[in-house]
Amino acid sequence: MTALRIIAFGYAAALFIAASLNYLPIPGIIDENGNAFGVFALDLFDDSLHVASGLWALAAGLISHRASKIFLTWFGALYLADGAMGLVTGSGYLDFGIFVYGWYEYPSFLIKLAANVPHLFLGGFALFSAFMFDRK
Score class of each variant (00 low, 15 high):
Asp47Trp: 05
Gly54Phe: 13
Leu62Met: 13
Asn33Arg: 14
Leu55Pro: 09
Leu44His: 14
Leu58Glu: 09
Gly54Gln: 10
Trp56Tyr: 14
Ala41Glu: 15
Ile29Lys: 00
Ala41Asn: 08
Ala52Ser: 13
Phe40Val: 14
Val51Thr: 10
Phe37Pro: 02
Gly54Tyr: 09
Leu49Arg: 09
Leu49Asn: 13
Ala57Tyr: 02
Gly38Tyr: 06
Ala52Ile: 14
Ala41Val: 14
Glu32Cys: 01
Asn33Pro: 01
His65Glu: 15
Asp31Met: 05
Ile30Leu: 02
Gly38Ile: 08
Gly38Glu: 07
Trp56Gly: 07
Ala60Lys: 02
Ser53Asn: 11
Ser48Asn: 12
Leu62Val: 10
Glu32Trp: 02
Asp31Glu: 04
Ile63Gly: 02
Asn33Gly: 06
Phe45Gly: 11
Ser48Gly: 15
Asp47Ser: 12
His65Tyr: 11
Phe37Val: 06
Val51Asn: 11
Asn33Tyr: 07
Ala67Trp: 12
Ala60Thr: 09
Ala57Phe: 03
His65Ser: 14
Gly38His: 04
Arg66His: 07
Leu42Ser: 14
Leu49Ile: 13
Gly38Thr: 10
Asn35Ala: 07
Leu42Asn: 11
Ser53Asp: 05
Gly54Pro: 09
Asp43Ala: 11
Leu58Asp: 07
Ala52Tyr: 12
His50Ile: 02
Ser48Ile: 10
Trp56Pro: 04
Leu58Val: 04
Leu44Glu: 11
Ala36Gly: 04
Asp31Pro: 03
Leu44Asp: 11
Phe37Cys: 08
Glu32Thr: 10
Phe40His: 13
Phe40Ile: 13
Gly61Phe: 03
Asn33Glu: 15
His65Val: 05
Ala59Met: 11
Ala36Trp: 14
Ile63Tyr: 12
Asp47Tyr: 07
Val39Met: 01
Leu49Lys: 08
Gly34Cys: 06
Asp43Thr: 11
Phe37Lys: 03
Asp46Glu: 06
Leu58Tyr: 12
Glu32Gly: 07
Ala59Cys: 05
Ser48Val: 11
Arg66Lys: 13
Leu42Val: 15
Gly61Pro: 01
Gly38Arg: 03
Leu55Arg: 05
Ile63Pro: 03
Leu62Gly: 09
Asp43Gln: 13
Phe45Val: 06
Gly61Ala: 00
His50Pro: 01
Gly61Asn: 00
Asn35Pro: 02
Ala67Val: 05
Ala41Phe: 08
Asp31Trp: 03
Gly38Ala: 03
Ile30Ser: 00
Ala60Gly: 01
Phe45Tyr: 15
Ala36Tyr: 04
Ala59Val: 14
Ser64Thr: 03
